[in-house]
Structures are given as C-alpha cells and as structure tokens.
Design a protein around this nucleic acid. Structure first.
Length: 474
RNA sequence: GCUCCCUUCGUCUAGCGGUAAGGACGCGGCCCUCUCAAGGCUGAAACACGAGUUCGAUUCUCGUAGGGAGCGCCA
C-alpha cells in the first residue's frame, strides 16, 4: 500500500527548524515508498494565522527543496466539510451541545487543580435535557465530542513503540466553537481521513492529543493511520528552541549563509543515523531513511556541526551551484560582482577557508573593491624597508606574466624568492599585505589570481609608495 | 498536582546479553606550510543512580533522580 504523509503547520510564524525536520521526514518517507507528500495549512485559528506566515512557510519549503504532491490545502476552505461531520456526530449522539459558560469551566479547572486532580470537563451537558429556553437563546453552545469513558486507547507508535492511556484520563473535548468554527483535534482527524493520510508524522508534543484523535477516528468509523511522533529539537543549551537561540526560522539559515543541502543533511542526522555515515545526498536520504529508525530522544542543536557540514557542501558541490547561492550574499553586502573575479572562482578558493557564504562574502570584498587602509599591525610587520626589494622584484616578474593563472603565478613568486635567495615568506607576506591590506588571505598564487593583474600591480605600487613614505618619516 | 514521554563522550549518534563501548562535530598535540584555513596522524572524553533477572548486563524488568510534553472554545 502506498504511503501518504502530510506536513501540517499552522501559519502563525515562520517555518521553524523543528517543523522543517518533520517536513523532511514526511517528504523522505513518502519519496522512499513511492507515496505522496501533502502540505496542509492549519489555519483554523483566524486570530493568529497570517498571510505572511503562509508565505514564509511556502518560502521555507521551497528553499529547502521539499516539494509536495498535493497542497497547500487550507483548512479554512474546508469549514463546510467540518460542519457536515459535526452534524453527523450530533445526529448519532456521538457529540452534544454544551451550554456551560466559560467562567464556570475556569472555576471548575481551578478547583480540580487544587484538589490535585487533572483538570477535565465534568460532563454537565452530556445528557442534559433541561436546557431552559432563555439559556439556549442567550448562549450559543459549543459542540463537544462524547469521549468513551471506559477502556484504554493504545497504539503502536512508529518511533515510540506501544503507548497506552486510559479513557478516564480524557474528557469531552470541544470540536466546534459557538460560531461553528472547528477546533484542531477535530479538523486534523477529518482531514487525515479525507486525504487518506496513512502515516502521521509530527512532533512528540502531540503524543497527548493522539488518544483523543483516535477516539474520533473510531467514532467516525475510520481506519487508523500509523502514528510516528518524532522528538523535538532543543537549543544548543538543551532548552526548548526559542528566538533567543538565534536562528529558529529556516530562512534565517539562508540569511546566515548556510546552504539548504547542509541544513537538510544536518537535520536528517538529528534523531536518525545510518551506520557511521555523516554526509547524505538527497538520493541517499531517500534510499536509507525509514521513520521507524528514528530515535526517541530530543536533540540539541549544534552549530559547530552544521558549520562543518556547510563547509563540506561549499567544497563538494559544483562551484557554480554554490556561486548561485553566494550571489544573494554578495548583493546583500552591496558588492558588485562584475567588478571582480567570477563567483565560481571565488568559491573554489574561499570555500575551504570559511564556514558560511555570509562569511565568504565578508572576507572577499578586497577582490571586488579597493580596501581603505593597510591593517596597522600587518603593515608594521610586513611593509618595512626590507620588503621594498622583494616587492619590486615580484612586481617586475608579475608584470611579465601573460597567462594570469595560479600555476604561472605560483612559479613567479617562487622564482622571485629563489632569485633573491630568501624564503617564500619574505616575498609572500609583504605581497599579501600589498594585495589585501591584511596578513591573512588565500595562498598567494590564488590571491593574485583573484585580485587580477592590473589591480595587483596597482596595489603593489601603492604598498611600495607606503614603504617609501614611511621610510622618509622615520 | 495529574497523565504521557525521554536518559551512551560537551554535542549528534552506533550498540540490540559476553565489545579494549565504535564513528562524527568540537577540543588538545604532532606533521604539512607563504599567512589563515584545509588535509593527514594522534590524544583526552560517555553507558544518570539503585535494586533485581541472568553464569554474565550499556543492552531485559522495577524503582529513584533528572529532563521534556500535555492537561484550552491554540495548533
């Protein structure tokens, strides 16, 4: 039988990394089994749902490349259907109208808590036949689902194993508000039945909702899907992930310079593994992933490992592909990519030196525009009188280079050093400071290559001038 | 408070009754080296605790402790 999974976020914010991982698991499970993956937007809470959030979720899914076969399906478009099912339950006496005012329920809840009891609806309206006319006219009732009061509800969770809870722990939940709008636990069940979802993958914060939902499935005479409750993702400090942990929204990771492949690879390894393998292509994830192998423990987010994976992908993915992602960051920091080396060339040189694309853009400005001043300590150390001769020599040598490629440039620097009878550092370091204004940059041949011939010669001249002025001043 | 869930290096994890408890990130050291990286080699680092079951428990059972989730006319 084909597997049908769904990811069902509520549009009350951006696409959270925890949600992204759940979506990834749903996606992988469907793709692996040749099934379908559905995206459903749970927007029944009209107060908190926003159009921007819907867009943010769609953007996040798109950036990650998690494409769905059906959807997005909006619950707000299905109110008529929920109302229909509610009427059926009412007619079958599996649900009933409840006229209890909110304040009565609040008081009840407080009393129960005080007595050390679990707060539950006491069932006052369950079999109430004495609704006075004036009450039924002034109070619009909610609809409650008649939960079984005996027996247990249990299911074999695909990741947790057998979970069981007594019906006496449950109460009659509201399935429709006074205005007729449906509530979460009810819409999920109706939708999952209507959409023939066969495997419900969701965060383990929903474990407690599952028994209630199972009872609704039964009342509706529907077959149960398989449930898989995946552990949550914690912040780096082990506490629940929240804004103060930095990036929680998926798009924030793009802004921070991560590749979608890296984030996906990082997320799939949270709670799941395949032997000692750390790096997985999407094809491998689809091939190896199985929801039953997901473990039960909540996992703390580790930026170091994400960084490592990100660098891995920056180096291993085709440079042109990485360059396309880098482009966004270059634009973002206001660099004109026409005024320097091709981005793909930049990527081949810089990817092993930085952890993120954001960092790459930041350390690459000198290849696209002139730097303002020499970094004081670098200049003090390397642009001294003794550096004048090597710089002049290398300038002459470079001026003669026709094929401005790393091999020829490397040769030029080496030959210059040999000719002067000094080691590489005596030539390379002053040259590096001349080229970049700092003492840190890629290998000198690569640095020259990226800076380009004309700009390199200009900058050497500038450094020579600096040395001369400084010499005169001393 | 009540119910449900979780517990192997700092972190992500392997383990599925007998292992020197493996890998990865990070951290330390060495090597390489024109700087910074990257790379290679290497080191330190874990079975929460207590009872059982068993010839033998990280692995099975039960407690304890710690952590998480839920208990809405939010999802």
């Amino acid at each position: 039988m084909s597997v049908r999974t769904r990811f069902a976020p509520s549009p009350t914010g951006f696409l959270h990394v925890g949600g992204a991982r759940t979506a990834l698991f749903c996606y992988l499970q469907a793709r692996a089994k040749g099934g379908q993956f559905i995206l459903r937007i749970e927007d029944t809470d009209l107060e908190r749902s926003t159009e921007e959030s819907v867009q943010a979720i769609l953007n996040g899914m798109h950036w990650l490349g998690l494409d769905y076969d059906e959807g997005p399906i909006f619950q707000t478009h299905r109110f008529a259907r929920y109302a229909e099912v509610t009427r059926t339950l009412l007619a079958e006496n599996k649900a009933y109208h409840c006229y209890c005012p909110k304040d009565r329920l609040e008081i009840l809840r407080e009393q129960q808590m005080q007595q050390g009891l679990k707060p539950r609806y006491d069932g006052l309206c369950r079999d109430r036949k004495d609704i006075p006319q004036d009450i039924s006219r002034s109070i619009k009732p909610v609809v409650r689902f008649r939960n079984p009061d005996e027996g247990d509800v249990s299911w074999d969770d695909a990741v947790r194993g057998l979970i069981s809870i007594s019906n006496t722990e449950l109460d009659d939940l509201v399935i429709a508000r006074p205005d007729g709008s449906p509530t979460y636990n009810f819409t999920v069940v109706v939708d999952d039945i209507d959409m023939a979802v066969s495997l419900v993958i969701r965060g383990d914060d929903h474990i407690n909702n599952t028994p209630r939902q199972i009872n609704i499935y039964r009342a509706l005479g529907a077959e149960l899907p398989r449930f898989a409750h995946v552990p949550m993702i914690l912040g780096a400090d082990g506490a629940r992930l929240s804004k103060r942990h930095g990036a929680v929204g998926v798009m924030q990771y793009r802004d921070d310079g991560y590749l979608p492949q890296a984030l996906l690879n990082y997320l799939v390894r949270l709670g799941w593994s395949h032997g000692d393998q750390e790096v997985f292509s999407m094809a491998e994830m689809i091939e190896y992933f199985d929801i039953v192998d997901v473990n039960r423990k909540a996992a703390a987010f580790d930026y170091n490992k994400l960084d490592w994976l990100n660098q891995h992908y920056m180096r291993e993915l085709p440079a042109s592909e990485v360059a396309a992602h880098l482009r966004w960051h270059m634009d973002h920091v206001g660099l004109n990519v026409q005024s320097g080396p091709a981005l793909a060339d930049l990527v081949t040189v810089q990817s092993e030196r930085v952890k993120t694309l954001k960092e790459m853009a930041a350390v690459s400005t000198v290849y696209y525009q002139d730097y303002d001043d020499f970094e004081p300590t670098a200049a003090k150390k390397h642009l001294r009188l003794v550096a004048a001769e090597p710089l002049q020599a290398i300038r002459a040598s470079l001026a003669a280079v026709v094929d401005w490629q790393p091999e020829a440039l490397d040769q030029a620097v080496h030959q210059t050093a040999e000719g002067l009878g000094v080691n590489m550092g005596k030539v390379a370091q002053p040259l590096r400071v001349a080229l970049t204004g700092t003492s840190v940059s890629p290998a000198i041949d690569k640095t020259l290559w990226l800076v380009g011939k004309d700009r390199s010669l200009e900058r050497i001249d500038r450094a020579l001038q600096f040395i001369e002025q400084r010499g005169a001043a001393e």
